[in-house]
Computed example of a mutant assay.
Amino acid sequence: MKRPGPLLTLLAGLLLGVFMLSLDATTGTKGTSYRNESPGVSVSPSSPPSPSPTRTTPSPTPSKSAPPNADYAGRTDDNSSAVAVSLRDGKAIAYFCDGRDKESWLRGDVKDDGTMKLTGKHGAELNGTLQEGKTIRGTVDLGGQRYGFTADKAVRPSGLYRATATVRGAKLEGGWIVLPGGGQVGILDRDGKPSAAPRIDPETGAVTIDGEQLTARPVTP
């Protein structure tokens, strides 16, 4: 038998080398792929953290304050009497007067909403409401009667005045309401006996009683 020639032997060797190189390259790719990927595990890019919800701080509820300091004066609905009220720091003092023989001093608190209930001697009572800081509208119960009234904000010399003194052994107590426009209503109590009061000078408060000059001063709580 004739032996294959050297050329065939060399060709066979080259083919075997190419086959082995191809097999090795394929095996290396698969190995690299296996090492970089885990079966059953998917890799996804990391997501940015969700922002924290913003908390809204509720606005503070505005606190109410006491009605402003002021004086009010006016007449009853039947025009028979006058009413004056002085407000200071949530307190009130009022004076009801018919200018002849009926009067009452009343005191009490004023609520933040402008309502007030003032009381005086012999069961006298004033119930009123401050409206927009300009007017007090209410009622006075005195001697079994009820009087509706409206008192507007007063500017000095309008307002409420009072004088007390002892003259020639007599105890004097006077109360005056100076109305807007200059009108006056007042009672002078002399040893428990009421009568119409003489006029005062609203600019100075000066008044002459039984020959003696006294000074009526503005009244505040």
Rank of each mutant, 00 (worst) to 15 (best):
F19T: 11
F19H: 08
F19L: 15
F19C: 04
F19W: 12
M20T: 12
M20I: 15
M20A: 15
M20V: 15
M20P: 01
L21I: 08
L21H: 02
S22M: 13
S22Q: 15
S22P: 01
S22E: 13
S22L: 11
L23H: 05
L23E: 04
L23F: 13
L23S: 12
L23I: 08
D24F: 15
D24A: 15
A25Y: 03
A25H: 02
A25K: 02
T26V: 14
T26E: 08
T26M: 10
T26K: 04
T26S: 11
T26G: 12
T27E: 06
T27H: 01
T27P: 00
T27K: 04
G28M: 13
T29M: 10
T29K: 04
T29I: 10
T29G: 05
T29H: 10
K30R: 11
K30L: 15
K30H: 09
K30Q: 08
K30Y: 07
G31L: 15
G31F: 09
G31A: 14
T32R: 10
T32K: 11
T32V: 11
T32M: 13
T32G: 07
S33I: 09
S33F: 08
S33Y: 05
S33M: 11
S33V: 15
S33T: 14
S33W: 14
Y34K: 12
Y34A: 12
R35C: 05
R35Q: 07
R35Y: 10
R35N: 03
R35V: 07
N36C: 03
N36H: 06
N36M: 06
N36E: 12
N36Y: 08
N36T: 09
E37H: 14
E37R: 12
E37L: 06
E37I: 06
E37A: 12
E37N: 13
E37F: 06
E37D: 13
S38A: 12
P39S: 07
P39N: 08
P39G: 09
P39E: 10
P39R: 11
P39F: 08
P39L: 09
G40A: 13
G40C: 07
V41N: 03
V41F: 04
V41Q: 00
V41R: 02
S42Y: 10
S42P: 02
S42A: 13
S42I: 14
V43P: 00
V43T: 12
V43N: 03
V43E: 01
V43Y: 07
S44E: 05
S44R: 05
S44G: 04
S44T: 12
S46D: 06
S46A: 15
S46F: 06
S46T: 11
S46Q: 11
S47V: 15
S47M: 11
S47T: 13
P48W: 00
P48I: 00
P48A: 04
P48F: 01
P48G: 01
P48R: 00
P48V: 02
P48E: 01
P49N: 03
P49H: 01
P49T: 02
S50E: 10
S50G: 09
S50R: 06
S50M: 08
S50K: 08
S50Q: 06
S50Y: 04
P51C: 00
P51K: 00
S52R: 07
S52G: 05
S52T: 13
S52H: 03
S52E: 14
P53I: 02
P53V: 01
P53T: 00
P53K: 00
T54K: 01
T54F: 04
T54C: 01
